[in-house]
Simulated scan of single mutants.
Amino acid sequence: MAATDLDKASTERAVATSVDPAEVPSAAWGWSGESRRAAQIAGWFVVVALLGMTIGNHQGHVEDIFLVSLAAVMALMLVIDSLTHRIPK
């Protein structure tokens, strides 16, 4: 039987990803990336934990200044991240 250029079309769709399975093993079975929702929840948990650490038996307030400023910077980063994610590309 002679070979022809007309082969049957495959019904499977090729998955186009920009992730190399050699670098990220989980890309081979379909998931590769990070969970934005889990990262946001963990970030807000850390902010609350940092603010909770200000309660205690501190004599000076140097620790409180560092804890509150670090929590504020982290909260600002989380807010900016959530706002920039909503902007369509």
Rank of each mutant, 00 (worst) to 15 (best):
M1L: 06
M1A: 06
M1P: 03
A3F: 13
A3N: 14
T4M: 01
T4H: 00
T4G: 02
T4I: 03
T4N: 01
D5F: 10
D5T: 10
D5A: 10
L6P: 03
L6D: 11
L6C: 08
D7Y: 14
K8N: 13
K8P: 03
K8G: 11
S10P: 01
S10Y: 07
T11S: 12
T11N: 09
T11P: 05
E12S: 02
E12T: 06
E12H: 03
R13D: 14
A14S: 12
V15D: 09
V15M: 07
V15L: 12
A16G: 02
A16V: 13
S18N: 11
V19H: 13
D20E: 12
D20W: 09
D20I: 09
P21Q: 02
A22G: 08
A22L: 13
A22C: 04
V24P: 00
V24L: 15
V24E: 15
A27M: 02
W29L: 09
W29N: 11
G30M: 01
G30V: 01
G30K: 05
G30F: 04
W31Q: 09
W31R: 12
S32H: 08
G33Y: 03
E34I: 03
E34C: 02
S35T: 11
S35R: 12
R36D: 12
R37Y: 14
R37T: 13
A38M: 10
A39R: 04
Q40K: 09
Q40M: 12
I41Q: 15
I41M: 15
A42M: 12
A42K: 12
G43S: 15
W44M: 05
W44A: 04
W44G: 03
F45T: 08
F45D: 12
V46L: 15
V46R: 13
V46Y: 14
V47S: 06
V48R: 10
A49V: 03
A49D: 00
L50S: 02
G52T: 05
G52C: 05
G52E: 06
G52N: 05
M53P: 00
M53N: 11
M53L: 15
M53Y: 13
M53V: 07
I55G: 06
I55T: 07
I55F: 08
N57L: 07
H58Q: 14
H58L: 15
H61L: 11
H61Y: 13
H61V: 12
V62A: 10
V62S: 03
D64M: 10
D64I: 13
I65N: 03
F66H: 05
L67F: 00
L67Y: 00
L67D: 00
V68T: 07
S69I: 02
S69N: 01
L70K: 04
A71D: 01
A71V: 00
A72E: 02
V73S: 05
V73F: 11
M74S: 07
M74H: 09
A75M: 01
A75R: 00
L76I: 01
L76E: 00
M77R: 06
M77T: 04
L78Q: 01
V79K: 03
V79Y: 04
I80A: 08
D81L: 10
S82N: 09
S82H: 13
S82Y: 11
S82C: 06
S82K: 10
L83D: 01
H85Q: 14
H85F: 15
R86T: 12
I87Q: 02
I87L: 04
P88Q: 03
P88I: 02
P88C: 01
K89N: 11
K89V: 07
K89Q: 11
